[in-house]
Design a protein around this nucleic acid. Structure first.
Lengths: 338, 338
DNA sequence: TTGTACGCGTTATCAA
DNA sequence: TTGATAACGCGTACAA
């Protein structure tokens, strides 16, 4: 049916081994025979079957990406960086969407066995130790983005400093009463975004000599509804904050909605700052803490490729820095005018 | 190294053929031996190698998705539907991002040869006739979403009626002077979204007895900057429109920005309606024409699967209907109050 | 009902 | 420098 390496060999009048050598430009092949083979390949419009190739090389040329699609905005940006890097290196990307824990377990357990992918990128998920170990055991190169495992190379942003930047920005504007809407921590990891950000908030307040008020610290879903309801709660409290830092831009948009519902003008009556720096924040003119999302994807793929090709088993923890982006939702509090 | 079907056969004390038969629950296998095999599989924690399997079956269990990632919002929603459907059917999805024409040609030409995917989904791209023919020739099942090819099953929304709905909505509100910001048509296809929407606009105006004013019809990029600059032009014209229909939600957000820059209040001074119904429109409280994006993905995958499994070569053109979603950016014009 | 042997298309080994 | 041949792991005729 399809034209194979054998056909090429026959047409070129050489052995299959020689054709293979030309294909992989390995070892020395006499230039004249090389040309003959090349001519035959062109004539037959032959291209080697990747599957048969995988059979022997035990390489597929594809890497898997496991990510929860719910983090749509953030995840899309990371994915973009991943795809760019993968394409550039001639790799293919297969996406495994995980909406729930069942699916996650499924992929985490199955993928290492099936040698369908040369490596794995895990986004916004922190695999448990047992899982990470099984990756090691099946020596499946793995990199975690926006998540952490002590056994796997992980790339995160400096969440402590990011949160610090956000709160410091508000303090610099003159705010003293600052609400913090954190994201829900999933699982019980020692290391996670939410914890780190809380620490950053704490540090910034402490550095400015502002007393930490637990009643201003809420924890809710990473989405808009979460931000909205948490903000509602904060704004209805006896002593509402003059500024709110939300743990994601989407949450911050929820805060904006809540403010509007309460008849508050942003940034006049309430300053709002988000986290992530997705395109949405730009559209909403939201001040935010910018994460280098595409970079994270590109760097993550590069690190994975190193593991795949160089067999570097070195585990790294890479922290990328965030940047404050001041837009139109943060300003001095009204009280400062008094 | 890895445990193979041979190991299972040895442990179970049967031949490899029997193991294979159990694996594919094909033909009749005596229950007792079936159990023996199953026990051995469990004991060895064996799972068949998909690659070796592909070698024989000439099936990979993966479907390729070619899409321009620039259409982030729209594409993400479609992708989500695709992934859902694919996962449910045990298929994997590999994403090919095309940012420019070179890449597109590359994938269009290479993919059919390499039998890496069982089928192809093309999103927001209309392959040329020659390309579509090559898909047929290599009998690679292909479905086009949000695009069209006469040779391939294509799923689109009814763009004519969608645009009609949008403009009719504005007319019903009392607008007579309506601007239309269309997207740029790429390539020179007889069939495309932009043309169809222009026709819908025309129809709606005509049905209402409103004269068509070409100076109100602009064509620009599908992005925010495009919407903004086109709106600027419309609003600075001697006789500016009281309402603008933009061909995408992202463009519409650009229109919102332009309105703000001109000191116009939406919807008081200017009504704005978009197209797509991405999450952004909800956040911006933008009236819009909703496309069934996830459905498009799911249906597309289902149609592809039919081709893959049933070898149905029937070419369909499926038109999905849009729905008007009225939010807070459309209202009666001020002039109507007079 | 079950076991054996062959073939899928390629790379890798080894002898020539 | 090159050709023949053995893997790679599985499905499937065919024979038993």
């Amino acid at each position: 049916m399809a034209v194979t390496i054998v056909d090429v060999a026959r047409v070129a009048g050489v052995g299959v081994g020689t054709v293979s050598r030309v294909l992989n430009n390995s070892e020395a092949v006499k230039e004249s025979t090389r040309q003959k083979v090349l001519a035959a390949i062109a004539e037959l419009n032959f291209s080697p079957d990747p599957i048969a190739r995988s059979m022997i090389t035990r390489r597929t040329g594809t890497v898997g990406v496991i990510m929860p699609f719910v983090t749509r905005f953030f995840g899309s940006e990371v994915l973009r960086g991943l795809i760019n890097a993968a394409t550039k290196q001639g790799y293919e990307l297969v996406i495994y969407n995980v909406e729930d824990n069942k699916q996650r377990e499924h992929y985490f357990l199955k993928l290492p066995m099936l040698r369908r992918v040369d490596g794995l990128i895990i986004v916004s998920l922190s695999p448990e130790e047992a899982i990470a170990q099984s990756f090691h055991k099946n020596n499946l190169p793995t990199v975690v983005l926006d998540g952490y495992s002590p056994l796997l190379t992980s790339i995160v942003v400096n969440n402590v400093m990011g949160a610090y930047q956000a709160v410091k920005h508000l303090i610099d504007k003159g705010h003293r009463r600052i609400g913090f809407i954190n994201g829900i921590v999933e699982g019980s990891f020692k290391f996670n975004q939410a914890n780190d950000r809380l620490i950053g908030v704490h540090m910034a307040l402490s550095d400015a000599g502002i007393e930490y008020d637990p009643s201003l610290m809420l924890e809710t879903e990473w989405n808009r509804a979460g931000g909205r309801s948490a903000a509602k709660q904060l704004l209805e409290s006896p002593e509402p904050p003059t500024a709110i830092f939300a743990s994601s831009d989407v949450q911050a948009v929820g805060v904006l909605e809540a403010a509007r519902n309460h008849g508050l003008l942003v940034p006049l009556d309430l300053s709002v700052i988000g986290f992530d720096g997705v395109e949405l924040s730009e559209i909403m003119e939201l001040s935010t803490i910018q994460q280098p999302m595409q970079l994270m994807g590109e760097l993550g793929f590069t690190k994975l490729l190193n593991q795949i090709e160089n067999k570097t088993n070195e585990v790294e923890l890479i922290r990328l820095e965030t940047a404050l982006v001041e837009r139109k939702t943060t300003a001095a509090p009204l009280s400062a005018v008094n």
